[in-house]
């Protein structure tokens, strides 16, 4: 029984015919290098650069893990679509909720602790 599933599993992997054997250790080395950069970023004390090294690099690392470790590009295409769709929904959630949550006062209300006295 497991042989059968195993066979299916291998056909599943066969989608990327002709893809070169990934050198996983090399990918890992890249990831660690990027981690070092993102830790070093704040020491330069330039705000926009910190943002880039922190979140830009996080996105790059995420893509590397998804592509090389999770093999998302070798799966049938709908896998990428459903993952993207869920991310887009989260973006939508953020875009529609942030204007409310980030709003500190309205016509008849203010958020008390937002007026400048930290607790």
């Amino acid at each position: 029984m497991s042989e059968q599933s195993q066979a299916i599993s291998e056909t599943g992997d066969g989608h990327g015919e002709g893809h070169v054997e990934t050198n996983y250790v090399k990918i890992w080395a890249w990831l660690v290098g990027l981690l070092a950069v993102s830790v070093a970023g704040p020491f330069l004390e330039i705000f926009w650069l910190t943002m880039v090294t922190a979140f830009g690099i996080a996105c790059v690392k995420a893509w590397m893990v998804a592509k090389h470790f999770m093999h998302i590009t070798l799966e049938p295409r709908f896998v990428g679509y459903i993952v993207m769709t869920s991310l887009v929904f989260m973006l939508l959630f953020f875009a529609a909720v942030a204007p409310d949550v980030m709003n500190a006062e309205g016509t008849q209300w203010v958020k008390p602790s937002w007026l400048g006295q930290p607790e």
Partner: peptide, 17 residues
């Protein structure tokens, strides 16, 4: 809890999303 830095409307959004 808005008096301590939170936001009640956030729950409404999470719930209705």
């Amino acid at each position: 809890d808005p008096t301590r830095g939170g936001d009640p409307v956030l729950w409404q959004h999470l719930f209705w999303f």
